[in-house]
């Protein structure tokens, strides 16, 4: 690039298109997420992952519930279903069973998947339905303005925990592992490359997979808890994150304060027959499938 004068020095070459534009609905962008929010990074990683894996885009289906993360389904240009609050997992269950050829991913938030939708997560994981659940955990209900949720750490401030949160949060990877998910990992939105690789792995893996993404929410969580803007939250992740694939369940607990580490990694990678595997196996044994 040739410098055209003092002002142009260091200027980055300007273009109109991005290499992942074809995976996104251009007529719906820019997205609604706040500056400093990590949802865009998580979406880019997903777009990159579905482009890289050896599964045709037309077989990819993306579902979400309600909330900030719930909007992802509207931006990615694959068959996408923006369902009711907390119900994306059972919707995905029906979709996958009715057409096992589809690669089905549920991308939603912590409140959607684990408060209102908690029971559905429990049972889809238990059944080992061959779907991928990606949870963006920003520790609060962002869309409604920063209320306490099922992952809000003890003592954290939100608009409905004005004196600090009295509740214990869920430990998502521990929960998923206990339920029998065949693949469980956690990254922050700063760990883009790990996250993207984990997504590729989950998409190709047979069985119920779970990825938790720790994500900055400068407006709903960062500011009230003095973690600052998105950039400061990511600096905090850089400082406190520890990759530990063999972490024990109590090490996975997130405190998001003081000197407590944020333990990330690929925690579980195993095999277990899926719901459809068992169905086929037993029906075949009874002569109902030839």
């Amino acid at each position: 690039m040739s410098a055209k004068g003092a002002n142009d020095k260091g200027r980055i070459e300007t273009v109109e298109e991005h290499p992942l534009d074809h995976i996104l609905r251009q007529d719906r962008l820019p997205h609604i997420w706040c500056p400093g929010c990590g949802l865009g990074s998580a979406m880019t990683c997903y777009a990159q992952a579905i482009e890289r894996v050896d599964i045709p885009l037309k077989k990819q289906v993306l579902l979400s519930g309600i909330g900030c993360t719930g909007r992802i389904a509207g931006y990615v240009k694959v068959d996408s279903y923006h369902t009711t609050h907390g119900r994306a997992i059972p919707f995905a269950t029906g979709l996958k069973i009715a057409n096992p050829e589809l690669c089905v991913t549920v991308f939603s938030g912590d409140g959607d998947l684990f408060a209102i939708g908690g029971n559905h997560f429990l049972h889809a994981a238990r059944r080992n339905i061959d779907i991928n659940v990606i949870c963006v955990n920003n520790f609060n209900y962002g869309m409604t303005g920063g209320q306490q949720g099922p992952t809000t750490p003890v003592e954290a401030r939100t608009t409905t925990t004005r004196y600090g949160n009295f509740e214990h949060p869920l430990n998502l990877p521990h929960l998923a592992a206990a339920l029998g998910a065949v693949y469980v990992s956690r990254w922050t939105t700063l760990h883009c490359r790990h996250l993207e690789k984990s997504m590729e792995k989950a998409l190709q893996k047979r069985g119920f997979t779970f990825i938790e993404i720790i994500c900055p929410c400068p407006v709903g969580f960062g500011r009230p808890n003095k973690l600052g803007e998105g950039l400061e939250e990511l600096r905090y992740y850089r400082e406190k994150s520890v990759i530990k694939n063999d972490a024990s369940w109590d090490e996975m607990v997130l405190h998001m304060r003081g000197e407590e580490p944020i333990v990330v990694g690929d925690f579980v990678d195993t095999e277990r027959p899926t719901y459809l595997d068992l169905e086929e196996q037993m029906l075949r044994a009874k002569g109902l499938i030839k």
């Binding site: 009711t84 119900r87 059972p90 029906g94 979709l95 996958k96 057409n99 169905e279 109902l288």
Partner: peptide
């Protein structure tokens, strides 16, 4: 199972109808 279809017992009626809608979106008569 005798006619190549799928029966699934869900965790509640909310999930039941969600699964029924999902299956219909994949082309099933549900």
């Amino acid at each position: 199972p005798q006619v190549g279809g799928h029966y699934i017992q869900m965790e509640d009626e909310i999930a039941s109808l969600a699964a029924v809608l999902g299956a219909s979106c994949a082309g099933a008569k549900s």
